[in-house]
Nucleic acid binder design. Sequence first.
DNA 1: AAGGGTGCCAACCGCACTTCG
DNA 2: ACGAAGTGCGGTTGGCACCCT
Length: 188
Amino acid sequence: MRKLCSDKPKKLGVAVNKGAWSKQEDQKLIDYIQKHGEGCWRSLPHAAGLRRCGKSCRLRWVNYLRPDLKRGNFGEDEEDLIIKLHALLGNRWSLIAGRLPGRTDNEVKNYWNTHLRKKLVKMGIDPNNHRPRPVKGFAQTSDEDNSSVSQLRSEQEPRETSSTKNTSSFVPDLNLDLTIGPPLMDNR
DNA sequence: AAGGGTGCCAACCGCACTTCG
DNA sequence: ACGAAGTGCGGTTGGCACCCT
């Protein structure tokens, strides 16, 4: 298996910070990327003088520091779009986020898990397959559906395009043109 | 006022995919 | 063609803030 981010310290003899980022760390990262652009994440921390692994830097930049991020509450139109996209794409958060300018996959994922999922449940819709829930409990819910979906997915080639076709097969009547084109540009 | 419960979100982990030598 | 290294993605977790009793 691949070396994990957290394995680095032993190898390099340098302690790697974990957990919340400090303002100084943020600033270092911003400064570095503004000067050199997003490049090799692996070497970035060392070059930028950060005691973080590249992965952590990338995540911090993509999810929090990027200047084009919107942040703040999701609008109703965004909620709608997320729900529709999720019905079509499943948990392809990066694809969904690609359709929402200024939003990140992590943000969309969190918002889905904390707000939209519950919202759908309240409306009597199964958030996993976007079908009306059976009145009597959860007879056929997430597990079965998810497994079939992941099975379908695993049969597809690249992640990006995969579930696009398959999950859409059981999406009800969504009046939305979602031809998958190139992402909105910025994207990572 | 304090303690427990719950929700939210940033960050981490590990797998899958891609690229490169 | 193959293996190692780098990157991206989705799932999960940790910890803080807020609410309720």
